[in-house]
Design a binder for these strands. Structure first.
Lengths: 186, 186
DNA sequence: CCATTATGTCAGCTATATTGACATATTCCG
DNA sequence: CGGAATATGTCAATATAGCTGACATAATGG
């Protein structure tokens, strides 16, 4: 019902509309703006279905993901990455802990810290969710051929705020220490 | 304070962890999963700041964007694209109308329809928000050189559910009818 | 010992979404 | 014509995910 296709006027608009203060002179990249919207929507859609059955949402997914990727991380690290308040994180984290997907251990050096780890169940879930997203990504990269992986990576990395791009890229590369890197590396 | 960099154990994990039912055999694309998260976060971050000052949120942005891109669209079309309920849309749409960014016109053929259009103020705002996102995209594409645009487009398009990818791509291409296409087209 | 740090928690608020029920106007079809 | 279907809007209750502000506890560190 109600197909997306829209069959309406689409008045031809002034081509060189002055766009006001902060905007650019160039014609908007409508295609990219919409592609990013739809691509991200479907990218997070697969995990959403699994999470819903467990009574979890996207917030739980993000926490589980980063804890799985960075075992032993501190609560403060997580707050920094997710850019949410500790009150928001608190509720989500508590639910993950209560249901046995995340565990906390006292810091060895600093006993104030509650270092975060996934439980075996947590790792299984995190890997399942990552598997769904990996399947989607892998399918696309396979369709597009050799150079596609690096091209897409560079585009996505470039979209990150220049200010903390290096920090983020370091974070992304970071957790691979000591892990086998199955594919074409880099 | 609390740099993102995490300096912890990172226990080497079993390489060939069996991942359970729906998951893939391949090692997860951790880099892509995280790049998409951070890239999308920053991509929507710029508009967020502008919207906040107007008392709007991301939901308003999405509605304004698609109405601007598809003047004369029906409410049902919008529900289909955004995949939300009419109750959710109702509130957001009402606020955009009340504040004068969106207008409704009775359908010429079918008087049940309330066709949606942006007002001049609405177009200005939509263009401003698109300009922010375009600046980010344009900067990246400029840095990456010639082939980058098409490569990124193909990757993003591939990430959309195969099921309705054609519908979405048609929608994206659709609103360009009658518009000048400033750049390298296609 | 005191300031700072790391974390947790209570209380209340906002934004965005949901489901279910129902109302109104209009169009379509037999 | 008259009833079914369609397009839209609205009321009420609920859920999720975020927020601010205030405060508590425990541990660290000078």
């Amino acid at each position: 019902m109600a197909d997306i296709s829209i069959t309406t006027a689409s008045k031809p608009r002034s081509a060189a509309t002055p766009v006001g203060a902060a905007a650019e002179a160039e014609e908007p990249y409508w295609d990219f703006i919409e592609l990013l919207f739809f691509a991200y929507r479907d990218f997070v859609g697969d995990p959403d279905e699994v999470l819903e059955k467990l009574g979890f949402g996207r917030a739980h997914h993000r926490v589980l993901h980063f804890v799985n990727r960075n075992p032993g991380m501190r609560v403060a690290d997580l707050l920094d990455i997710l850019r949410i308040t500790k009150q928001s994180l608190g509720r989500v984290l508590k639910e993950l802990i209560d249901k046995g997907y995340v565990v906390q251990k006292e810091g060895a050096n600093d006993r104030r810290q509650r270092l975060l780890y996934v439980s075996p169940a947590g790792e299984t879930l995190a890997m399942k969710l990552a598997g769904l997203q990996t399947a989607r990504i892998g399918r696309v990269l396979a369709e597009l051929g050799p150079g596609a992986r690096e091209a897409a990576r560079r585009f996505l990395a470039g979209m990150i705020d220049a200010q903390d791009r290096d920090r983020v890229l370091r974070l992304i590369a970071h957790a691979d220490r000591g892990r086998p890197r199955g594919r074409d590396g880099a």
